[in-house]
Structure formats: C-alpha cells, structure tokens
C-alpha cells in the first residue's frame, strides 16, 4: 500500500499513463495506435479494480476490440504508416502544451484540495443481472436512443466514406456491372 492505494493500482496507472505518453510522443502512427491500445487495456483494468466488471469488459470489447482496429485501418487506408517526412507537431504546439498543462494543474489542484471523502465503502453488489434489469426498466429510453444513435452513426460513416458519384472508380464499377 502506497498512499493508501494498492501496488496493483500504481502498476496499472503507470502502464496507462505511459501508454498515453507514448501515443503522444511516438512518430510512427502504427506505434501510436499500439500504445493507445495499452492505455485502453490499462483503463479496463482500472475499471475492474473499481468493481465495475461489466464496464471493464465492455471497455475491452469496444475499445481494444473495435476502436483500436478501426484506428489501425484508418492509418493504413490513409498511408500513414512509417515515419512521416514532415514535422509531427503543429506550429502552435507550445500553446497546446501550455493549455494541456494548465488544464491538468487545475484538475489536480481541485482534486487534491477538495476531497474530504472517506476511503470508500465495501464492494457494491452489482451483477450483470442487475445491470440488465436497470437497462430494461429505468434506462430503457436512453438504451433505445443509443440504439438509434449507433444505427445513424453506422449509416452516416458508410455514406461519408463511400465513393462519390463523380468518382472515376465508381464509373468503372458501374460500367463493369452493365
């Protein structure tokens, strides 16, 4: 126990922050995507340490299983793999770092100064059954809205990424079909 927190927490936190830092600093975009996956995994383990098993495994499925793969596909489709030939940071990088540091300083200051909270209660008795019952009773309207949002996002992403009508490739495909 260090500062009232377990060794497992500190190791996981170290991995999470190191992965995020590597994603911020590495040049090769594929390496960035891999370190992003490390951060996602660390956050999922932190969720598990917070007794949120369902959220932890949902995090693993959605982020490591889907979002990381999606990011890698986007990098490869835009030929972003390999070290870029130009600078990787914008011309206004100093202002960006200053803003991020100020935001972190504010967040850390408010967390450290304003927490009289206790060490926390015993582990809550939350099972997948109770989550499912809550989703189907109290939260059924948000669940349906999220279903609509996901459908709209799926169709929208396909339409946005689809070839245009004026595109030469589409004409070729049409000609081949006819």
């Amino acid at each position: 126990m260090i500062f009232g927190l377990s060794i497992a927490f500190w190791i996981t936190a170290l991995f999470t922050v190191a992965g995020a830092l590597a994603a911020a600093l590495l040049k090769n975009l594929v390496h960035c995507a891999l370190s992003l996956t490390v951060t996602f995994a660390g956050l999922a383990i932190l969720f598990l340490q917070l007794d949120a098993q369902f959220a932890g495994f949902a995090q693993m499925l959605v982020y490591i299983g889907a979002v990381a793969i999606l990011v890698v596909f986007a990098i490869l489709l835009t030929r972003g793999a390999g070290a870029p030939e130009y600078r990787i940071y914008t011309s206004s990088w100093l202002a960006g770092i200053a803003i991020a540091a100020a935001v972190f300083a504010l967040l850390a200051w408010s967390v450290i100064t304003s927490l009289p909270a206790g060490a926390g209660s015993a582990a809550p008795d939350v099972t997948v059954l109770s989550i499912g019952q809550a989703l189907m009773s109290t939260y059924v309207l948000p669940l349906e809205i999220v279903a609509v949002v996901l459908t709209v996002a799926l169709i929208g992403a396909v339409i946005v990424a689809m070839h245009d009508k004026g595109d030469a490739k589409t004409h070729e495909q049409k000609g081949g079909a006819q």
């Binding site: 995020a20 994603a23 911020a24 975009l29 986007a74 972003g80 940071y89 202002a95 991020a100 540091a101």
Partner: peptide, 19 residues
C-alpha cells in the same frame, strides 16, 4: 486527469488528423 491532459495535448499539437 493525467490521461485527459495528455489527450488534450495530443489533440492540440499533432498534425495528423487521425492523431
């Protein structure tokens, strides 16, 4: 807060849209 600040720095400073 650390992860958020790093994410903010990435979004503000990197040149690649995917980053």
């Amino acid at each position: 807060a650390l992860v958020f600040a790093i994410g903010l720095a990435v979004a503000l400073t990197r040149r690649n849209a995917i980053m």
